[in-house]
Computed example of a mutant assay.
Amino acid sequence: MKMKKRKVNGQSVHPSENLFKRQFHAEAPLQKLVTDIAYLPFGGKMLYFSSILDLYNGEIVAYSIADKQDTSLVLDTLNQLPEQEKMLLHSDQDSVYTSFAYQEAVKGKGITTSMSP
């Protein structure tokens, strides 16, 4: 018997096109943003640092630290961004960024996503 696949919040969606095309210069604040997760060894465990950097001035405009690398970590970081039109947010194709929940949150904020292949 073949089972039907259903999309739930944890499953991935199709990755976004790479809209940056190596053009990392921004003309204004909060126009072009990049995001990633860094691994921080801390004592006997690992912490995860999710950040969003503004390419206009190199400033980190949002960040979160957690002991798990999951969608809630990047959603917490994303939710710190102010509402603003014409924001472009670039990431890799990690499962947290292609997750249904993250993609819905980005769309809800009116942000356009871009992803490296």
Rank of each mutant, 00 (worst) to 15 (best):
S50L: 01
Y63R: 07
G10N: 14
Q11H: 14
E59D: 15
D67P: 03
E17D: 11
K21S: 15
H14I: 15
P29E: 00
A66G: 06
V13S: 07
D54C: 14
I52S: 02
L19V: 06
T71V: 15
R22V: 07
K5G: 09
Y63T: 06
T71H: 04
Y56L: 14
M3R: 13
V34N: 04
E27Q: 11
K5S: 12
K21Y: 09
N18A: 10
S50A: 14
D67K: 06
V8Y: 12
F42Q: 03
I52A: 02
Y63Q: 15
N18F: 07
K5I: 07
H25F: 12
K7C: 11
G44W: 00
P29V: 02
M1R: 10
G10L: 10
L30S: 00
F49M: 09
K32Q: 08
F42M: 08
K45L: 05
L30K: 01
L40V: 15
V8G: 09
D36H: 05
H14S: 14
Q31S: 13
L53T: 02
A38W: 05
Y48H: 07
K45A: 06
Y48C: 06
M3W: 07
S12W: 02
F42S: 06
S51H: 08
L33I: 09
M3G: 11
V61R: 02
L53D: 03
P15Q: 01
V8D: 08
G58E: 09
R6G: 03
L40P: 04
P15F: 00
M46G: 08
G10Q: 10
L47F: 06
L53Q: 07
S64Q: 14
L30Y: 04
I60T: 10
L53Y: 02
R22T: 08
G44T: 01
V13H: 04
L19R: 10
V8E: 08
S50P: 00
G58A: 10
S50N: 04
V61P: 02
P15Y: 00
Q11L: 12
Q11S: 15
K68F: 13
E17S: 13
S12I: 05
V61E: 03
P41Q: 09
G44C: 05
T35C: 07
L47H: 04
Y48P: 00
K68L: 14
Y63L: 09
G58I: 13
V34H: 03
M3P: 11
F42L: 12
E27W: 01
N18I: 08
S12E: 05
Y63S: 11
A62D: 00
Y48T: 07
L19K: 10
A66L: 06
G44E: 09
F20S: 02
K4H: 03
T35H: 02
N57K: 15
R22I: 08
A66I: 04
A28E: 11
K2T: 12
Y39V: 03
R6I: 11
A62L: 05
M46A: 12
